Simulated assay, not measured.
Amino acid sequence: MAQFDVHRLRQPQDPRLAFLLDIQNDLHDGLETRVMLPLVRTDLVPPPIRRLNPRFDIAGESVILLTQDIASVPRQEIGPAIASLKAERDAILGALDLLIIGY
């Protein structure tokens, strides 16, 4: 698994959840969990806060990053990578900065 890769859950329980974004640094690849951010279809969430919830297109779906729902996910629940948002690194880190630092 690699930082900024997009995955599906093996058995999703929330029908709104389209994908998960891995934000954990690869230095910690040996841990049993990965720190992930959910990516939810835009038509299933209230209007987003632009910097906190950037929009992306993945596998033909428009999705919103729910930065505020950051979570640790057991590796065995994470499916294979289907895309990468490495090119969107600045927007992702900006959303995390806004959540944690406030600007």
Rank of each mutant, 00 (worst) to 15 (best):
V40H: 01
P15N: 08
L27P: 01
L99A: 10
L93K: 13
T67E: 04
H28M: 13
Q68A: 14
L39A: 07
L96W: 01
L9V: 11
I58V: 15
I100E: 14
L85V: 14
V40F: 05
E88F: 01
L98T: 03
G94W: 06
F4C: 04
D69T: 06
T67F: 00
Q11T: 15
S84R: 01
M1W: 04
R34S: 03
Q68H: 14
Q11V: 15
L98A: 10
V63T: 07
T42F: 15
R55D: 10
D14F: 06
D29N: 13
A59S: 13
L96G: 10
R16N: 13
I101Y: 14
I64E: 02
L52Y: 00
L85M: 13
I78Y: 03
L52M: 10
S72E: 12
E61A: 11
A18H: 03
D26G: 09
D14Y: 04
D90N: 12
P38S: 12
V6R: 03
L65S: 00
M1L: 09
L93M: 15
H28A: 14
R10I: 14
L37Y: 01
Y103I: 08
L99C: 07
A95T: 03
L27M: 14
R51I: 05
S62H: 11
V73L: 13
L66H: 02
I49S: 05
P12Q: 10
D90V: 15
N53E: 15
L39V: 03
F56V: 04
P38V: 05
E88S: 13
S84C: 09
L39C: 11
G60V: 10
I101V: 15
S84K: 04
L65E: 03
A71H: 07
Q68S: 14
A95Y: 01
D5W: 13
A2N: 10
L98Q: 09
L31R: 02
A59D: 14
L96H: 02
A91R: 08
G94C: 06
S72T: 11
R8F: 06
G30I: 03
V73C: 09
D22L: 05
P15F: 00
L66S: 06
G102C: 06
M36C: 10
P80D: 11
L27D: 12
L52S: 10
Q68E: 15
V6Y: 03
H7N: 07
A2I: 00
Q3F: 02
P74R: 10
L17V: 14
L98F: 10
L39M: 11
R8L: 08
A59M: 05
T67P: 00
A87G: 06
L96Q: 13
G60W: 08
T42E: 12
N53Y: 01
I101K: 11
F19R: 02
D14H: 05
G30K: 09
N25C: 09
L93G: 06
P74C: 05
S62D: 08
L20I: 13
F56W: 03
L96K: 05
